[in-house]
Amino acid sequence: MVNDTSDSSRPPARAGGVFMALGTLGGTIIGGFLGQPSIGFLAGLGGGFALHGALWYMDRRKR
């Protein structure tokens, strides 16, 4: 039997890394269609990072 010492009253943290991954992929694809895949990559990464940070901040405030 496993001894669980974690605080079970706190809800589990939500994963926001998917925004960074999908933003990077989506930005690269859209940027590729527009002829600027590098700029699309950076814009998607920045947008995904912003969404990830917002989700982290909202999740942190609920604790």
Rank of each mutant, 00 (worst) to 15 (best):
M1H: 15
M1A: 14
V2C: 08
V2L: 15
D4C: 01
D4V: 11
D4E: 10
D4Y: 06
T5E: 15
T5W: 02
T5A: 11
D7S: 11
D7H: 11
S8V: 11
S9I: 02
S9Q: 11
R10S: 08
R10N: 03
R10A: 09
P11M: 06
A13N: 10
A13E: 10
R14Y: 03
R14F: 12
R14V: 09
A15W: 11
G17T: 04
G17A: 03
V18Y: 11
M20C: 03
M20D: 01
M20E: 04
A21S: 10
L22F: 14
L22R: 07
G23A: 06
G23F: 02
G23Q: 01
G23H: 09
T24A: 14
G26K: 03
T28V: 09
T28F: 15
I29E: 00
I29W: 02
I29T: 03
I30V: 13
I30D: 02
G31E: 00
G31K: 13
G32W: 01
G32I: 02
F33P: 00
F33D: 00
F33L: 15
L34C: 07
L34E: 09
Q36H: 13
Q36E: 14
I39G: 00
G40C: 04
G40K: 11
G40W: 02
F41Y: 06
L42E: 12
L42N: 09
A43T: 07
A43I: 06
A43W: 06
G44E: 02
G44A: 05
G44T: 01
L45K: 02
L45H: 03
G46L: 02
G46F: 03
G46N: 03
G47Y: 03
G47L: 08
G48R: 04
G48C: 00
G48M: 02
F49V: 07
A50E: 00
A50S: 12
A50K: 08
A50R: 05
L51W: 08
L51F: 15
H52A: 14
A54S: 11
A54Q: 08
A54G: 04
L55T: 10
W56E: 09
M58Q: 13
M58E: 10
D59R: 13
R60Y: 07
R60T: 05
K62I: 04
K62P: 05
K62T: 06
R63Q: 14
R63M: 09
R63S: 05
